[in-house]
Amino acid sequence: MAHQILPVSHLRTFGLWSALVAVSALLAYGLHAAHFPAALLLGPMLAAIAFGVTGARLALPRAGFQAAQAMIGCLVAHAVTGSIANTLADDGFVIIAVVLVTVAAGGVVGWALTRLRVLPGTTAAWGSSPGGASAMVAMSEEFGADPRLVAFMQYVRVVAVVLSASLVTRILLQGSPLPAGPDQAAEAASAASVFTTLVVASVGAAVAMALRVPAGALVGPMILGAGLHAAGLVRMDLPPPVLDLAYAAIGWYVGLRFTRETLRLTIRALPGILVATFAVILLCGGWAYALTHLLAIDFLTAFLATSPGGLDSVAIIAVGSNADVSFVLAVQTLRLFVVLVTGPLLAKWIARAVPGGAA
């Protein structure tokens, strides 16, 4: 029987993925050695950006990204148990204020970009929405925005948030060992608890996505797992290799969205996009500093809570640091839903408020 020979395109794809995995591992090792949190997210993301903009034309299947989100949802559920509800009850008004200020900051930046004609039409409004990157891209086209520009703005912001949050965490934790998160736990995960976790991930993601819950693959397992874990009904564990792969998958998914074509399309608007991105981060950072005087929380917790997206990346950093995970995720989760509700309304308002904004 003659041996089957793989097509050249398949061999090229296999070679590129092998190279991407190798470069990701090297970067992740270097970042881990430098004591950066979420090194296994940062390394693959930076490697994927480099591969994407140099024309590798790789893409992580969406099913793989959703599976990774489900794993992170279970990681968060293991870490926070049922304390998010208590946090919302105790600090509800302040959390709502944090969410509204962050959304308002994104709206102001979107209005300014539209007013200055940095970006066409309502694209700036959608691209500046602080959270729900995938949902914003999906909905933006229905409202007349350019989804390619919106995607570029959203994922530039996600990368900037991950880098800035990791850097702030690294600086604030300098000299202190990183806490042992669930992925660093010494106890061995039993086969039964791992199986239970996979069932929670599958059921939670499937139900949430069927109900069209925003970021359902992440939020569904997080809510279901937290409830069951808090009630003592299940024990949840994830082996380190599974979490490592989930971190890398999210990094690859975000990084590979930066292609040569997208970069060429947005090169004229890139300075404005970068200014807008860091303006939102600085506004949220200022609000985080103010929060430390209003609540008994540290700056790292406040900074991660107010960081303008994305939920999965911030969750990874929060769990791997000394931050109050419950507060961070309470704010981030609530803001995700607020952004998805107010996004269309804000875009329409900007289009009407700015002459020619709907063009």
Rank of each mutant, 00 (worst) to 15 (best):
L26F: 13
L26Q: 09
L26E: 10
L27Q: 05
A28H: 05
Y29I: 10
H32T: 12
H32Q: 14
A33Q: 15
A33V: 14
A34N: 07
A34Q: 13
H35C: 01
H35Y: 07
F36S: 07
F36N: 06
F36V: 09
P37V: 11
A39M: 05
L40M: 12
L41E: 06
L41T: 03
L41R: 04
P44G: 07
L46E: 05
L46P: 01
L46V: 12
A47M: 04
I49E: 01
A50E: 03
A50S: 10
A50T: 08
A50N: 02
F51T: 04
G52L: 11
V53R: 11
T54F: 12
A56I: 07
L58H: 10
L60V: 15
P61C: 11
R62K: 15
G64T: 06
F65R: 15
A67E: 02
A68S: 11
Q69N: 10
A70R: 01
M71D: 02
I72E: 00
C74R: 00
L75W: 00
L75N: 00
V76Q: 00
A79Y: 00
I84V: 15
I84T: 02
I84E: 00
A85E: 10
N86K: 13
N86M: 12
T87M: 14
T87G: 09
T87I: 07
A89L: 15
D90Y: 05
V94R: 06
I96K: 01
I96W: 07
A97G: 08
A97E: 10
V98I: 14
L100W: 08
V101R: 05
T102A: 15
G106P: 02
G106C: 09
V109T: 07
W111M: 11
W111E: 04
W111I: 03
L113P: 01
T114I: 05
R117Y: 04
L119N: 02
L119P: 01
P120R: 09
T122R: 15
T122M: 12
T122V: 15
W126K: 02
W126N: 03
G127M: 04
G127F: 06
G127T: 03
S128W: 06
S129K: 09
P130H: 11
G131C: 04
G131T: 03
G132V: 04
S134C: 01
M136C: 05
M136S: 09
M136K: 04
V137M: 13
A138W: 08
A138L: 13
S140A: 13
S140L: 05
